[in-house]
Simulated assay, not measured.
Amino acid sequence: MSDDPIDRSGLGKRFWEKKPLSKLTQQEWEALCDGCGKCCLNKLEDEDTGEVALTRVACRLLDDSICRCAQYDIRHQFIPECIVLTPDNLDTHAYWMPQTCAYRLLWEGKPLYDWHPLISGSAQSVHDAGVSVQDKTVSEFEVPLDEWEDYIIEEPS
């Protein structure tokens, strides 16, 4: 899959259905990322309900043309609070992940969507399905924090 920056070569067929998340190899774990870019969106959490809303206001490191962090390997030098999602911290962090996120879906015991690159065979499928934030974000430098609420986006249910 040459259009895919994530190495999905040599993985077992539908490995995510056969192994618990805690038993995945690093390559399998990384392959679960669908490349939507939504995890890099700034979120607002309702203090009363705990409900999390995604905004179109993206982390300054997100390149929304490819839905990838422009500094992934060294992102903590720029954004110390950026969370590295692992099987060990899903219980704490899955609730704020996008509803379509493979990590969240599997944590909740749900199947992956047909557009997921592991099923479709193409990294482009997440964009074709309209699930990604490709070319749909604004930079956090352009929008004051008190206006983020104006940029809330609805997620598919």
Score class of each variant (00 low, 15 high):
36 C>W: 08
125 S>G: 04
72 Y>C: 05
139 S>E: 03
66 I>Q: 13
30 E>V: 07
156 P>W: 08
104 R>P: 01
78 F>E: 08
97 M>S: 13
28 E>V: 09
94 A>H: 15
110 K>Q: 15
153 I>D: 03
112 L>I: 02
95 Y>A: 14
87 P>K: 06
126 V>Q: 09
101 C>H: 05
19 K>F: 05
137 T>M: 06
89 N>L: 03
57 V>Y: 03
62 L>M: 10
120 S>D: 10
45 E>Q: 15
18 K>M: 07
89 N>Q: 07
89 N>V: 02
63 D>N: 15
75 R>V: 07
38 K>G: 04
32 L>N: 05
8 R>S: 07
105 L>F: 02
20 P>L: 01
123 A>N: 15
120 S>T: 01
70 A>R: 12
118 L>D: 05
18 K>D: 09
85 L>F: 12
28 E>H: 06
21 L>D: 06
77 Q>N: 11
104 R>W: 01
22 S>P: 02
127 H>V: 14
157 S>H: 11
15 F>P: 08
27 Q>A: 15
17 E>T: 14
137 T>A: 05
47 E>L: 15
42 N>Q: 09
96 W>E: 12
18 K>N: 14
70 A>E: 10
111 P>I: 09
35 G>P: 12
34 D>H: 13
100 T>P: 00
21 L>K: 14
58 A>T: 03
58 A>N: 01
54 L>N: 11
42 N>I: 12
69 C>N: 07
102 A>D: 00
60 R>S: 12
10 G>K: 08
150 D>E: 15
113 Y>L: 14
79 I>M: 09
58 A>E: 04
117 P>D: 01
59 C>E: 07
4 D>F: 11
124 Q>M: 12
125 S>V: 02
6 I>N: 05
3 D>R: 07
26 Q>W: 05
79 I>Q: 08
35 G>K: 14
17 E>L: 15
40 C>F: 13
106 L>R: 08
112 L>C: 03
74 I>A: 12
47 E>G: 02
111 P>K: 10
146 D>P: 00
99 Q>G: 13
39 C>R: 10
28 E>N: 04
99 Q>V: 11
44 L>Q: 11
34 D>R: 04
117 P>N: 02
123 A>V: 00
30 E>K: 13
83 I>G: 07
116 H>W: 06
156 P>D: 12
36 C>T: 06
92 T>A: 14
